[in-house]
């Protein structure tokens, strides 16, 4: 059974179909890459999954249950956590407090939440920044703060929205390691939106390609790269020649 399934999901903004009739499945334990040119509807898919907007039509099924239309916080409680492309740290809270806030979902007592938060910070290599205010954190660490904060809710499915954008090469490798670790050691299923081809090609088990709100291809990284439609829409001639 698929962990997550989108069934003919469509979302209109006025007359524009940001996402139209997109269906795909994500299986337990997978890392699925979601790629496409700017404006293809990738982030909209995330916003539909955690019901930041509800789909105009179609359904989202999580672990065999329809979650379409459930409140965002309830979806998080069921086990879907996300990060934001435009990072949203709690600016006037320390890094530790940021993570504690999300750890409270599973650990209502402050002491246990603090312990869980420390563990998440250690896992994402942020422990050195635990007392830094959210607003003073450098971008690379903010991206990891997003991951740590999502992790603290103990998700079954993690939605990563461009957590590698804007990182320098060493930060990039660290981020890839952390994402792999989360998937392999914690067994968390991941959907990742990423423009950085090195990241997406190396860590995704499967890739779903969106273009103008429609799914144009799906498969292993190799299959997707060799699909002529994808090459035309997105990857360019360099990959086509390779």
């Amino acid at each position: 059974m698929a962990t997550l399934e989108t069934v003919d999901v469509t979302r209109f903004f006025g007359g524009l179909a940001a996402v139209s009739n997109v269906s795909f499945q994500v299986n337990q334990g997978e890392i699925v890459g979601l790629i496409g040119p700017n404006g293809a509807g990738k982030t909209t898919i995330f916003n539909l999954i955690n019901n930041y907007f509800s789909p105009t039509s179609g359904d989202i099924v999580f672990q065999g249950e329809k979650i379409t239309g459930l409140p965002t916080h309830e979806i998080c409680k069921r086990g879907i956590a996300r990060t934001f492309q435009v990072v949203k740290p709690f600016r006037r809270m320390s890094v530790l407090e940021n993570i504690m806030t999300s750890a409270f979902l599973r650990y209502p007592k402050a002491e246990e939440a603090r312990e869980k938060a420390r563990w998440c910070l250690d896992y994402t290599d942020l422990l050195a920044y635990q007392d830094t205010l959210g607003r003073s954190l450098p971008l690379g660490q903010r991206k990891r703060l997003e991951i740590a904060r999502a992790l603290a809710t103990e998700p079954k499915l993690l939605l990563l929205d461009e957590t590698c954008a804007g990182l320098n090469p060493s930060e990039l490798n660290e981020a890839i390691d952390i994402i792999r670790k989360i998937n392999q050691d914690l067994g968390i299923t991941i959907i990742i939106i990423e423009h950085h081809m090195k990241v997406i090609m190396s860590i995704s088990h499967r890739i779903v390609v969106l273009h103008h709100g429609q799914k144009i291809s799906e498969g292993t990284p190799q299959q997707v790269v060799s699909s002529p439609q994808v090459v035309e829409a997105y990857l360019g001639e360099k990959y086509a020649a390779g």
Binding site: N50, Y52, P71, T72, H73, E74, C76, K77, A81, R82, F84, K88, P89, F90, R91, R92, M93, E97, M100, T101, S102, F104, L105, P108, K109, A110, A113, G134, R149, A150, T153
Partner: peptide, 25 residues
């Protein structure tokens, strides 16, 4: 000092993020 306080401040700082972290804002 309790969970409530963290949730309150989180709501002040960013409602979208708070909601996405499972807080019924």
């Amino acid at each position: 000092a309790s969970k409530l306080g963290y949730y309150f401040v989180a709501i002040r700082e960013d409602q979208d993020a708070a909601e996405a972290m499972g807080i019924p804002t």
